[in-house]
Design a protein around this nucleic acid. Structure first.
Length: 519
RNA sequence: CGCGGCGUGGAGCAGCCCGGUCAGCUCGCCAGGCUCAUAACCUGGAGGUCGUAGGUUCAAAUCCUACCGCCGCAACCA
């Protein structure tokens, strides 16, 4: 077990101000496909998710609902995890930043950075609204003629003590790292953006303290202050694997292989986060993958626009795998995508129902009706390829490359267009339903070959639609246990020791559609 | 001159980095075939001056320049 390569990945942790929507779910899904793929490929995967609870908004929201902040957070954490489980997100741990363990580890980290000399006391000066009891940005001051937009009262210039993280000290090292480590920020366009930002504006020291808050984590060296929520949120990635209280586990997993995040928080993860780690004497993560956003019918989605879509609604009308397939197939993970109910139906019906699902029905029915579910004499026979001009090993390598680069839409496109559709053509050309009347052995051979396509497709689709892929694979007596299949198994056509037979359960002799058409 | 993305047949997209084999894919539409299958599948067809104008080149959707149009971010709605 110890010789397995390890794979530690995270998603961004969410503010639990409101329930998850299809945008937040998009990230978890993309991350989950990667985690499932890595597990198949023999990695010792650890997949961390969590909620970011030490923000004032959370405390405010709890107060609105008349709840204790902690009770509110715990309840939201339950709800989030409920949605993630409904989507078959295979996370290994779920961190809540309001929990004591995180707080303790967090304090140790901050103390370490302080001990290393990268945190200093200074003062923050800005425009302050006595009504809001908070600082407003210079921009807000300029745009509202020096008044608070909420209270319509003049903002006052105010200065107060605070603690700074010396981000500027890492500017040169960071720029060098960004330039010399192309894989550190993906996709490429984001990396260029991050390099450009430093070159144009440089890095300013960061105020990491907040004064006079009750909710949040206190600075260990100055309990008057709480830690700025971003500083504490990023630490989830290390406190969740034992930083500060379980050295062995931490050393096993860190540095992270990849952080999956939204494009809007790329700077936090590629400027501030590596600097924080270096300041504490730790390594930077190996990769930060910045994914795109999901629109709703071409429009930006947001709470204030009132057009957020709940993943559970979509699942209720279709299925978990249909949901997973749509977003991974239709929305390019590195860039933006779009959700619409109509498009969802189109993709589902044409690719899952008519193509993949229907192919399974055809295969099962033909074998069941004509050969009583068993293809005698096929044991130890090597199947032939049903797709002309396709080098199977190369094809699988291509799909693998797409999955590893998180180009999930292209991986699925290749599976459908270059593999499933040609398999349908093969069936049409060889018409085993006709052939069986004149040459039963020849027809058997055709079916034996065609069924292999289902085996291969199910393996390649396992990270994307785990339940359905399993249902396809286990419809036949393929020798290798489902839990052990890997992509390499899809790359070759092999003989099996027993005659091929149907093991799927039939209802009154009929095949139950895997993906019933919708709409 | 803030930053970034995009503009390809009716709709949605791929291709552009590494110019030619590119005008491709899905949906929709029309005609035909088949009937094993979830009214599914297969074949053929109509439909595009690849935003506009220049330039480089033997050759440009693909490289360069300018312009037009749309959209994000810049304001803690992932």
């Amino acid at each position: 077990m110890t010789d397995k390569p390890r794979w530690f990945q995270t998603t961004a942790i969410d503010y639990p101000n409101s329930r998850p929507h299809i945008g937040t779910a998009f990230e978890k899904l993309g991350a989950d496909v990667q985690a499932r793929y890595r597990r198949m490929e023999g990695f010792d995967v650890y997949f961390l998710m969590g909620n970011d609870e030490n923000t004032l908004k959370v405390a405010d929201r709890a107060k609105e609902l008349g709840q204790e902040p902690q009770a509110y957070c715990d309840d939201m954490a339950r709800q989030f995890q409920h949605v993630w489980r409904a989507l078959d997100i295979s996370f290994d741990t779920f961190v809540q930043t309001s929990h004591e363990r995180h707080k303790q580890c967090c304090r140790k980290f901050v103390q370490k950075v302080h001990d290393n000399g990268y945190i200093y006391k200074g003062s923050y000066e800005g425009w302050y609204c006595p009504g809001c009891e908070e600082f407003k940005s210079d921009k807000a001051h300029a745009e509202h003629a020096g008044q608070c937009p909420a209270h319509k009262r003049p903002l006052v210039r105010r200065s107060e003590p605070c603690w700074y993280f010396e981000l500027s000290a890492f500017q040169d090292r960071l720029l060098k790292h960004l330039k010399e480590t192309p894989e550190f920020v993906q996709p490429e366009s984001r990396r260029n953006e991050m390099i450009g930002f430093i070159e144009a504006e440089g890095l300013q020291d960061l105020n990491i303290s907040r004064h006079g808050e009750q909710w949040g984590i206190k600075l260990p060296f100055d309990p008057e202050f709480t830690i700025y929520v971003w500083f504490d949120a990023l630490l989830t990635y290390v406190t969740g694997i034992g930083y500060g209280d379980d050295e062995a586990t931490f050393r096993k997993h860190w540095p992270a292989d990849v952080h999956f995040i939204g494009k809007d928080i790329t700077r936090f993860h590629t400027h501030i986060w590596p600097a924080m780690l270096w300041a504490a004497g730790e390594e930077a993560p190996k990769k930060v993958f910045s994914h795109g956003f999901v629109n709703n019918n071409g429009e930006k989605m947001g709470k204030t626009l009132g057009n957020v879509v709940d993943p559970l609604e979509i699942i209720a009308k279709s299925s978990t795998d249909a949901y997973r397939y749509y977003f991974m197939r239709e929305c390019p993970f590195p860039s933006d995508g779009d959700y619409s109910g109509q498009r969802f139906e189109e993709v589902y019906n044409s690719e899952l129902a008519n193509n993949l699902g229907n192919m399974l029905s055809r295969g099962l029915t033909l074998v069941t009706k004509n050969y009583e579910s068993k293809l005698d004499g096929t044991a130890n026979e090597t199947p032939e390829s049903v797709v002309p001009n396709l080098n199977l090993a190369e094809f699988v390598a291509t799909v693998r490359g797409h999955v590893e680069a998180c180009r999930y839409n292209l991986a699925l496109q290749a599976i459908v267009q270059d593999f499933l559709t040609p398999t349908n053509q093969y069936l049409e050309t060889n018409a085993p339903w006709k052939l069986v009347k004149t040459d039963k052995d020849a027809a058997k051979r055709v079916l034996f070959n065609a069924v292999q396509s289902l085996r291969i497709a199910s393996i390649l689709l396992k990270p994307f639609i785990p339940k359905s892929a399993e249902a396809i694979y286990t419809s036949f007596n393929f020798p290798k246990p489902w839990a052990e299949v890997e992509y390499a198994d899809a790359a070759e056509l092999k003989a099996q020791p027993d005659d091929l037979r149907v093991t799927a359960e039939l209802v009154e002799g009929k095949v139950k559609p895997l993906f019933p058409r919708i709409g």
